[in-house]
Design a protein around this nucleic acid. Structure first.
Lengths: 241, 241
DNA sequence: GAGTGGTCTAGACCACGCA
DNA sequence: GCGTGGTCTAGACCACTCT
């Protein structure tokens, strides 16, 4: 097994979040079911109410439950959809879906593009970027093409890791202790052209979704960037707000 | 003035949120500035720390600040962008932007469309929907076309209210005590066609963004729906996650 | 070392849904 | 009227950034 420090003292609210999340995904709860009340969860897991509420708040944020005053926490499983607009990261968001990753360009260090989408700091510019291109497939049909730029700062052996069918976010968390804490994204509908149309297996000029993202991490002054080209003809993109 | 109960005992954490949010938007803080520390805010506003933290957490959620352990809350003003993907509602998200609304179809009661995007409950079906079409313009250029379906349940005089350059969310909050607490949305890139292309003033077949949303409110079992057609050629859509 | 945010406790009172 | 979640208090200890 490769679990260096899987549960390395995760905060209690995160532990409870993971447990309930798993229960919902695995079908122990169905849409419409009530979660145990906050009080019950306090007793069961030996936590104070704010701690329990913190966990539940995150489940709300990620769309797993909705809460009703005087009623309780209601499980809400969303119909199939591709929730790549959330913090959780693509691989997690698509849990339960047959997701495959094909590496188009293996991670390699190179200078930043000349005019980059987002402004870069001195240190980012100096260090260069780790560049990587991946095609993600759902049910063996290409869903989106993902170009990632990561500042090459203190990420030993990063380029020699395998990302075939692996989660980038997981790799960052497990080997480098980097957690994703948020980000911003810009969306555009654009016509598919050239190699993007080929990768996504759509006709030239088919409307596709283009996302440019800046992803914040818990490491001080460390963020990274990605560009997505997404085929929304077969699947809708799905988001919570 | 039309402020029936503007501050009708808003919770403290919301009051603080609104104050800080306004200060950020109005330029009292610039990007990179530090907000007062949590402790300072506690003292200044006579609140306990969890209350202050609740307000700050919402500012983080809405992208106004990022927090750094051992450092503080850093103000983060996003460059121009159109943040219609957030809870806040279009009008609020576009604060500071020259937003105009042109009513295409005045609110009217009618039955629900035959096959509606989202499953509807008995009571929603029985009551029929309030239907309304609006074109939203930024700097006098059409940005998106918005079709709204609201269950016609206990919304007296709704159809006779004016929505020209008014916020729907504000109307719901002020006159019906309905708050938006979240929602889900589906995104697609589609080609502009027919009247949509005309309204948005784009060429036929230009890629546009299509959103289908279900919007949750604090009123029990009350949600509403909207469809958006958005021109992303001139502006990117902007989102936080 | 001083100050910051991150986590956590053990209570309290209120508004709401439901029976 | 009971149980639920929504709000709030007044503390506590820890990990982190900065000087």
């Amino acid at each position: 097994m490769d679990s260096p420090h899987t549960t390395q003292s995760l905060p209690q609210y995160r532990q409870l979040y993971e447990i309930l999340r798993r229960h919902i995904i695995e079908g122990i709860y169905e849409t419409g079911d009530m979660l145990p009340s906050e009080h019950e969860l306090c007793v069961t897991f030996h936590m104070a109410r704010p701690t329990v509420r913190h966990a539940l708040a995150n489940l709300v944020r990620d769309g797993f439950i909705i809460k009703r005053k005087g009623k309780g926490s209601i499980v809400y499983k969303h119909p199939k959809g591709v929730g790549i607009l959330s913090v959780a990261g693509t691989t997690t968001a698509l849990e339960g879906v047959d997701l495959k990753t094909r590496i188009i360009t293996r991670p390699q260090v190179q200078p930043w593009p000349h005019s980059f989408i987002f402004p870069l700091s001195e240190i980012e510019l100096e260090s260069g970027s780790i560049f990587m291109e991946r095609l993600r497939l759902v049910d063996d049909r290409p869903l989106f093409f993902d170009i990632t730029y990561i500042p090459n700062i203190n990420l030993p052996r990063f380029c020699s890791r395998s990302f075939e069918d692996k989660s980038l976010f997981d790799t960052l968390r497990r080997f480098y202790n980097i957690e994703i804490i948020g980000g911003e994204q810009r969306l555009k509908a654009i016509p598919a052209e050239g190699r993007f149309a080929q990768y996504l297996e759509v006709q030239d000029q088919t409307p596709i979704l283009h996302l440019e993202r800046k992803i914040q991490t818990n490491r001080y002054r460390f963020q990274f960037y990605s560009k997505l080209y997404c085929n929304t003809t077969d699947h809708d993109l799905f988001g919570i707000f």
